[in-house]
Amino acid sequence: MDFKQLQIGWVKYMNKLVEDGILDEQYKQLQQLQDESTPNFVLEVVSLFFDDSQKIIYELERALAQPIVDYKIIDAYVHQLKGSSSSVGAGKVKEVCVKFRESCENQNKEGCVFAMQNLNHEFSRVKHNLQYLFELEQQILAAGGSIPTIMLSQ
């Protein structure tokens, strides 16, 4: 396929992710940090986010399955995930983390279980979408094009 078509597809896909709140302005900031000296900066940071989040989600599920739930431990994990998701611009994951922490604060196990389900859902969604975006980028580069530049909202 012509790289221009791929670039148009990339922009549409990216805009949809921002429109749906899956990604936010911070992700655009990340993209602007990528340059010739670090051409894979976004991929590297996002891969770290995927790995870290996967580990945290595993620990959260384990902590929630205990007969006596330690809300402090859960809150610490969710706080970590909130920070990471906010740094990479994973907007929906961050939103779920905020609600998760509210449930922790209220020691509301039902709320925490519900938030856990949402977290799994949103994390899978952003991971799937970003992986697709990276695949598109590889196709654009392979076709001789460059990744489109996106503007930050003022």
């Binding site: 990340l30 940090l33 340059d35 940071v45 770290l48 920070g83 990471s84 740094s87």
Partner: peptide, 15 residues
């Protein structure tokens, strides 16, 4: 302590 944030902050400073 968060490697993701460290990477971003270092990159921002370098830029």
């Amino acid at each position: 302590d968060n490697k993701i944030m460290r990477n971003i902050e270092v990159k921002l400073l370098t830029k």
